[in-house]
Deep mutational scan, measured.
Amino acid sequence: VGDQVLEIVPSNEEQIKNLLQLEAQEHLQLDFWKSPTTPGETAHVRVPFVNVQAVKVFLESQGIAYSIMIED
């Protein structure tokens, strides 16, 4: 199991704000291929294997929908 690319769908401005804060966490080494800008629009982010669980827990705790787009 390696890195994953998640497709994330924020449903409101609050969730977009939370994702932008997540993007700013440099220690997570997230690679946003497509940043969140509009509710209902997908964002794509590559998550290093060591941080996959932490990111998924965060998304679930914020009620942000996501799916695994690419499993490496």
Rank of each mutant, 00 (worst) to 15 (best):
E7V: 12
F58T: 03
K56G: 03
V52F: 13
T38H: 08
Y66H: 04
H27Q: 08
N51F: 09
Q29C: 07
I64K: 00
S35H: 15
S67L: 07
D3V: 12
S67N: 13
E71F: 15
R46F: 10
V1K: 15
F49Q: 11
F32C: 03
Q25W: 15
A65F: 10
T37A: 07
K56T: 09
K17S: 09
K17L: 14
V50M: 11
S11A: 15
Q25S: 12
G40E: 03
E26I: 12
L28Y: 10
D72Y: 15
Q62T: 05
N51A: 11
Q4I: 13
P48M: 03
S35A: 13
A43C: 08
A24C: 06
E71K: 09
S35D: 05
D31G: 05
I70A: 11
W33Q: 11
V57W: 14
E23A: 15
E26Q: 12
Q15L: 01
T37P: 04
E14W: 15
N51L: 07
E60M: 06
L20K: 12
P48R: 04
V45N: 01
Q62I: 09
I8W: 01
V52S: 06
K34W: 06
S61C: 06
V55E: 00
L30R: 01
E71I: 13
E26T: 15
T37Q: 07
V52H: 04
F32P: 02
T42H: 08
Q53E: 14
L19V: 06
F58A: 03
A65M: 11
Q29P: 03
I8P: 00
V47G: 01
G63W: 03
Q53D: 14
Q25I: 11
G40N: 08
I16V: 15
L22M: 09
A65R: 12
I70P: 10
Q4M: 12
K17H: 10
K17M: 15
E13C: 07
L22S: 02
Q21P: 01
N12I: 02
F32W: 15
E7I: 15
H44C: 08
V9A: 07
H44I: 15
Q4L: 13
A65Q: 10
I68T: 07
A54H: 09
V57E: 15
W33N: 06
S11V: 12
S67P: 01
D72G: 09
V57M: 14
R46N: 05
E26L: 11
K34A: 05
V1H: 15
Q29L: 13
A43F: 15
L20P: 01
W33L: 15
V57L: 15
T37N: 07
H27V: 06
V1I: 14
E26K: 12
N12M: 03
D72V: 15
V55A: 02
H27P: 04
T37S: 12
G2V: 09
V47H: 00
S35P: 12
K17T: 08
I16K: 02
I68F: 06
Q21G: 10
F58Q: 04
I64S: 00
F32E: 02
A43I: 15
D3A: 14
E26V: 10
Q53L: 12
I68N: 04
V5D: 05
V1R: 14
F58M: 05
N12E: 03
S35E: 09
D31M: 06
Q29H: 13
L28S: 03
F49M: 11
E41D: 09
Q29F: 07
E7G: 04
I68K: 03
G40L: 06
I8S: 01
L19E: 01
N18F: 13
K56I: 14
L20C: 05
G40A: 03
F32D: 02
K17G: 08
N51E: 05
Q53V: 11
D3M: 12
H44T: 15
G63C: 05
D31V: 13
L22D: 02
T42S: 13
V5G: 03
S61P: 00
Q15D: 08
K56Y: 09
G2K: 10
G63R: 03
F58H: 04
E41M: 10
E60A: 07
L30E: 01
I68R: 02
H27I: 05
A24H: 09
F32L: 02
S67W: 09
I70C: 08
M69C: 06
V52W: 10
E71V: 11
N51I: 06
L19C: 03
E13M: 12
L28D: 02
E14Y: 10
S11Y: 10
H44Q: 14
L30M: 08
I8V: 08
E23H: 08
I70R: 08
Q15F: 02
P10T: 04
V9R: 13
V50W: 11
L30N: 01
E13Y: 11
H27N: 11
K34C: 05
L30C: 05
P39N: 03
I70K: 11
Q53P: 09
L28P: 04
V52K: 04
P39G: 04
A65L: 12
W33I: 15
S11N: 11
L20W: 14
P48E: 04
E41Q: 10
P10M: 04
E13H: 12
G40P: 02
P39L: 04
L20F: 11
T42D: 03
L59W: 01
S61Q: 15
I16T: 04
H44G: 04
I16E: 01
A65S: 12
N51K: 07
Q21S: 14
I70W: 12
L20G: 05
V52C: 05
A54C: 06
E71C: 08
H27E: 12
A54L: 10
L20T: 06
I8Q: 01
N51P: 00
K34T: 09
D31Y: 08
Y66C: 01
H44Y: 15
N18K: 14
S11E: 14
P48A: 05
V1S: 13
M69Q: 07
L6N: 00
L6W: 13
E41A: 10
A65I: 11
S35T: 14
L20D: 03
S67D: 06
A65D: 14
E41V: 12
A24P: 03
P36V: 10
V45T: 01
A24K: 14
L6T: 00
P39A: 10
T38N: 09
I70F: 12
Q15W: 01
Q53C: 06
A65N: 09
R46D: 01
M69A: 06
G40C: 06
P10N: 01
H27Y: 11
E41S: 08
I16S: 02
E14M: 09
A24N: 10
E26A: 15
R46K: 12
W33G: 05
K34V: 08
I64L: 04
S11Q: 13
Q21M: 14
T38E: 09
E71P: 13
V45R: 00
P10A: 08
L30I: 11
Q15R: 00
Y66M: 02
V47L: 03
D3S: 15
E23P: 05
Q15N: 02
Q62E: 07
P10G: 03
P48L: 04
E26D: 10
T42P: 14
E7H: 08
A54W: 12
I8N: 00
E23K: 14
A54Y: 14
E71S: 13
G63H: 07
L22R: 02
E23G: 12
L28T: 03
L20A: 07
V52L: 15
A54K: 12
E71A: 13
A43Y: 14
E14V: 06
W33P: 05
E7K: 09
D31T: 09
D31H: 13
P48V: 03
N51W: 11
A54Q: 10
I64M: 05
T42I: 08
L6V: 03
D72H: 14
L30Q: 01
E14F: 10
I70T: 15
G63K: 07
Q53K: 07
G63D: 07
I64F: 04
G40Y: 09
N12W: 02
R46S: 08
